[in-house]
């Protein structure tokens, strides 16, 4: 009995391991447009079947996003973009903290958008890039009745670990660049450490409010 459960545990671990590594190896060969489409459809499928998520369970969405979406984002690049000129002035330690806090903030606030997903149609536009390109934009459109379709554009870069998204435009608004003035203002008012503290406080407040 004991032996069998150990084997079961081992094989479960192996399966988990395979599961962990599989996305990476697939990502290396998956073209960026196919990657966006697969991940989007997979996540939407889960959301549309999950009553708890639809009822507004943000923690559950966050764990879903953590598992399915975040591996395809490059938060260091995103943070650098949002920081602009100030990025060069940050120490390695400050950069690590900024990436950590910015990631938490983006995930927490935008994951909640998924809870309001209902039956919008997604249209995946063909990629306009050469096969040799290492930096492309993937265009997706959300169709809603009575509204102009909403464009979602993903700027993606090719890395050793597959294609990673580093900037997202929704209806022409970069959710990353929109932070640049806010970040710069905080740094001007106090310092980079001051900005880190503000982000930490904000994340703590959001986390507390969700509970």
């Amino acid at each position: 009995m004991k032996r069998r459960s150990t084997i079961g545990l081992l094989s479960a671990l192996l399966l988990c391991g395979a599961g962990l590594f599989a996305p990476q190896s697939i990502a290396e060969v998956t073209p960026p447009d196919a990657l966006v489409k697969t991940v989007t459809l997979e996540v939407l499928d889960i959301v549309s079947k999950d009553k708890e998520i639809q009822a507004g369970n943000v923690e559950k969405v966050i764990s879903l996003v953590d598992a399915k979406v975040l591996p395809h984002f490059s938060f260091d690049s995103m943070t650098a973009l949002a920081m602009g000129v100030n990025w060069r002035k940050a120490t390695a330690d400050q950069k690590t903290k900024l990436i950590q806090e910015f990631r938490t903030l983006l995930v927490r606030t935008y994951a909640s958008a998924l809870t309001s997903y209902r039956d919008e149609q997604f249209e995946f536009l063909p990629l306009r890039a050469k096969p040799t390109d290492t930096d492309v934009t993937v265009n997706v459109r959300v169709i809603k009745p009575g509204r102009q379709p909403i464009a979602i554009d993903y700027d993606m870069e090719k890395t050793a670990a597959g294609w990673k998204c580093y900037n997202v435009y929704v209806a022409g608004v970069s959710l990353v660049l929109n932070y640049r003035t806010e970040f710069a203002n905080e740094i001007r008012k106090s310092s980079i450490d001051g900005l880190i503290a503000v982000l930490q406080q904000k994340n703590h407040r959001l986390e507390a409010a969700a509970k």
């Binding site: 690049s77 890039a129 050469k130 265009n139």
Partner: peptide, 22 residues
């Protein structure tokens, strides 16, 4: 095109047309 700063490896410049939706 705005590149994320902090990248060491040189990167091929993608043609501008690729970034603009139809």
């Amino acid at each position: 095109r705005e590149r994320p700063p902090g990248r060491d490896e040189p990167r091929a410049e993608a043609p501008l047309a690729a970034h603009e939706p139809a």
